[in-house]
Structure formats: structure tokens, C-alpha cells
């Protein structure tokens, strides 16, 4: 079978599911962040696959570039926030950080 669009989409779907599982099931905030990166990569694979096979051409790649930019910014800010949380709580377990609730 010729490798086509569907193959890439299936890879991206599984990667997305793995990322989602990471976000939902892990306590450690850095792990949540990693799951997020996986999801972003899954999205990027979709963009580029459609750029290659779906006729989006260069626009798909541009969209992927912006996703990478956002991921970089998000990682920087998220880690800064993490450091703050760590200084405050001495841990970064997201399920225990619920002071904003009240």
C-alpha cells in the first residue's frame, strides 16, 4: 500500500490520544506540559500532511510554523509559572494546586 494521507493522519491521531492521556492522567505539571507538546506535534503532522496531499501547499507549513512559535512561547511562560508555583507550594502537582478555586 502506497503511503498516503491516511497513514499520517492515523499517526497523528494516535499521537494526539497519547498526548491527551498524558495531560489527563499525570500529576506532575511538567508531564502535563509534555503531553501538550505531543498534541501540538500531532496537529503539526496533520497540517503538513494536508500541505503535502490536501492541496494546502505552503499555507499548511506556515500554519505549522506559527504553531511552533506558539509552542515555544507557551513553553517559556508555562515553565516560568511552574517555577513560581514551585516556589510557592514546594511541589508542582496540578491536582493539588487549587487555591484559586475558593
Amino acid at each position: 500500500m502506497e503511503i498516503g494521507l491516511t497513514h499520517y493522519l492515523i499517526v497523528s491521531a494516535i499521537l494526539f490520544a497519547l498526548g491527551l492521556y498524558g495531560i489527563v492522567s499525570r500529576k506532575h505539571a511538567v508531564m502535563v506540559l509534555m503531553g501538550l507538546e505531543l498534541i501540538l506535534n500531532a496537529a503539526n503532522i496533520n497540517f503538513i500532511a494536508f500541505a503535502r496531499y490536501g492541496g494546502m501547499n505552503i499555507d499548511g507549513q506556515i500554519a505549522a510554523i506559527f504553531v511552533i512559535i506558539l509552542a515555544a512561547a507557551e513553553a517559556a511562560v508555562a515553565l516560568a509559572i511552574l517555577l513560581n508555583i514551585y516556589q510557592h507550594f514546594k511541589h508542582v502537582n496540578v491536582d493539588e494546586v487549587k487555591e484559586m478555586k475558593e
Binding site: 496540578v94 484559586m100 478555586k101
Partner: peptide, 14 residues
Amino acid sequence: LQTGNIQSYIVFVL
């Protein structure tokens, strides 16, 4: 409904 747990929010959303 507001548990304060981000992960449960994500679960609800999905």
C-alpha cells in the same frame, strides 16, 4: 462542579 483541578476540566471539556 468546580473542583479546581485543571485535569478534570479537560476531561469535562473533552
